[in-house]
Write a protein that binds this DNA or RNA. Sequence first.
DNA 1: TATAAAGTTTAGCCATGGCTAAACTGAAAA
DNA 2: TTTTCAGTTTAGCCATGGCTAAACTTTATA
Lengths: 216, 216
Amino acid sequence: MYSVAIEDYLKSLWKLGPKDVGTQELASHLDVKPASVTKMVLRLTEMGLVDHTPYKGASLTRQGELEALSVVRRHRLLETFLSQTLGLGRDQLHAEAERLEHALSKELEDAIANYLGNPVRDPHGHPIPGPNGELPGGFDIPLSDCPLNKSLTVMQIPDYDSLVSSWLETNGIFPGVKLIIESRDDFDGGINCKIDNNEVRISSSIASLVKVSQED
Amino acid sequence: MYSVAIEDYLKSLWKLGPKDVGTQELASHLDVKPASVTKMVLRLTEMGLVDHTPYKGASLTRQGELEALSVVRRHRLLETFLSQTLGLGRDQLHAEAERLEHALSKELEDAIANYLGNPVRDPHGHPIPGPNGELPGGFDIPLSDCPLNKSLTVMQIPDYDSLVSSWLETNGIFPGVKLIIESRDDFDGGINCKIDNNEVRISSSIASLVKVSQED
DNA sequence: TATAAAGTTTAGCCATGGCTAAACTGAAAA
DNA sequence: TTTTCAGTTTAGCCATGGCTAAACTTTATA
């Protein structure tokens, strides 16, 4: 089993990928200094988990990707499990899973997946990778890219930013909710939606983080 | 929050205490070398968690004891939670809780305790310390110290030795089971019990690890 | 095209928590 | 009382994963 730090680096590279990720970008995502990233990326390259081109960036090898997917699977299974059993709020799930994911054995992972009936989405709507890294489909598109006056269903919301999370919560936006975009602000990209007969204005930055599906 | 290593040292000192614990004893319990223990004990003393007399031994301060009880509480709540929700076998619980206990936030600890209805015993019958370190009573006595021909109820079984655990499991010895000691081998201390109308011979070493209560 | 700025890497430091080998203590045996 | 030896501590090493400061690339700007 890899250390917490290594798992965190692989997970961040996966989230920021598949493009080459710069030292600075990775550093700010992990909340460490760029010099620490360079050092660690060299070690990961040595271990065959990462490809690194100096002054250009780093990306996961297939092996690194599989390991990252394993961490993501544990994270999303834990979120689903904690939500189902303890009824934790969507806003608490991420932080708890973030710490527990590194301490989950394969056996416990299997037991949880089995208990939950091998779910394909976590409570934020994010796809849960399979035990061998298979990432379930998904043609979900950013709400910010959708046409007006079509019936849309919210599929995925972000989990890492607690400010965004609580805004979404209080505005009733979570997976499964249906909405229609009624107008778009040409100037700043903000959109006006109808949700459950309520009018809600969503800023473009948030709209780009919410993924929806479009009825045929 | 203290590191995994520090929490492990405190927990071991608690389990081996309250007497002064020698360097060697602590080292073998933690599976590290004595020199590593001496170094760490000095740090813990510096931190006010441990009292150390050179060449004599170490014991927990009140602060160290409270921290140890907090780790034990998390461990035993996790065992209970994993048993109830996932139905894990008593033999798997210990190892999983051992890793997860260090990653459990106060909030999640509270949520689990609440979900379980603030249990006072874990699946091995061990008392679960309260949120402020209160250790629920218990006049349970080692099976090896009990008189013959009295009705006894198994209250606590050990959790750390998987060989002992599986022997107990296959012989139907777990908390709640009633038994009677019919005879004792004067030579090696082994005892012959009647459990559920079956005869079971229990070695003295195992009998000293099983705690029972005696009906008035 | 030369230079400034932004981003990356290197060098060298620190704390943590292991290790081995050697020195030291104290209690039991000679 | 002296010696022995088991147990403890010290000294000094190592890997991990952070950090800062300084050097180096690359890219963009003048």
